[in-house]
Amino acid sequence: MANKLCSGALRALAVEYKSLQEEPVEGFRVKLVNEDNLFEWEVAIFGPPDTLYMGGCFKARMKFPIDYPYSPPSIRFLTKVWHPNVYENGDLCISILHPPVDDPQSGELPCERWNPTQNVRTILLSVISLLNEPNTYSPANVDASVMYRRWRDSKGRDKEYENIIRKQAMAARAEAERDGIRVPLTLEDYCIKTHVKPAASDSQVEMTDFYDDDYDDDDDYDDDLSAGSDYADEDRDADDSGNGES
């Protein structure tokens, strides 16, 4: 059964990864941590324009279980993020990544939690939305939650929360630029247009955008699937002790 689940997860992840290379989504980009491992992705989340996070490039690690998409992945920020829904160790606490159980004390409805129809696109778009609109009812970082509410209720007059976020965004941008990553600063750059590859022709030039810089051309996902079976039986829970659940 475990091998069957792993095989299904590999197929699902291969399809999603290929789709995100061919049709990138505004606000983030993804790449594999290791080309031989489809179960661990590195994510760069760009701060949306006209928000406190504008100009920031926040790196995170996504780890997928062997029964994905029946169970949710986990997300841990590698970049320091002061946020009500991010633990001190970087683990993200968001409803969409919580198992669909009935837990009245959490304040979450089962329909707000994970279900197999979700995918990487919907997850990361939810994360981007959460950055600007934190959930303060069940915070992972109580101090950040109190500070955010104070900033919100004062309509921005209390600058403590805002100053911390802007400082982190600037530091994240500087690190990204050192790594050769172009961070979108305008709405035009941020809202990329999905492009369709033209038919092969010597006279046609394929359109590119800033999402394409760091990726190698690799259309042979069958190789990824076979390679993934080599580590399918390994215990992936050893370093996933925190799944970001509150």
Rank of each mutant, 00 (worst) to 15 (best):
R113M: 03
V25M: 11
G27P: 01
A2H: 15
E88K: 13
Y148W: 15
E22F: 07
D91H: 09
N141W: 05
L5F: 14
Q118A: 06
S71D: 04
D237M: 11
L92A: 05
F77Y: 04
P65I: 07
K59S: 03
E160Q: 11
G242M: 09
G90K: 03
S74I: 08
R61E: 11
S95A: 15
S203T: 13
A232I: 07
G242Q: 12
N37M: 12
R166S: 09
V101K: 12
S7D: 10
M1L: 13
T117I: 07
E245L: 15
D217F: 11
L13M: 06
L52C: 06
H195F: 04
F58W: 03
T208G: 05
L10E: 06
S203A: 09
G8K: 14
K18W: 04
D220A: 12
A174L: 02
G107Q: 02
D213M: 13
V142Q: 14
H98G: 01
V30S: 06
W41I: 10
G156R: 08
A44Q: 08
P110T: 00
G56R: 05
Q105A: 12
I165R: 03
V33R: 08
S71W: 01
A14E: 03
G90W: 04
A171G: 01
D224V: 04
C111I: 10
Y68I: 01
Y161F: 15
D218E: 14
I165P: 03
A144C: 08
R150P: 02
D219K: 15
V15T: 15
A60Y: 01
F77A: 03
R29N: 10
I66T: 09
K197N: 06
V205R: 14
H98Y: 13
Y87D: 00
L125S: 06
G107T: 02
P116T: 09
D214R: 09
D158K: 08
Y68Q: 00
Q204R: 13
M54L: 04
R236I: 12
D189M: 05
K4I: 15
L13R: 07
N3M: 14
A60L: 01
R157S: 13
L185E: 08
M62H: 07
Y17P: 06
Y53V: 06
P198L: 02
N163D: 15
M62T: 08
S7F: 13
D179Y: 01
P99V: 01
N89Y: 04
R178S: 09
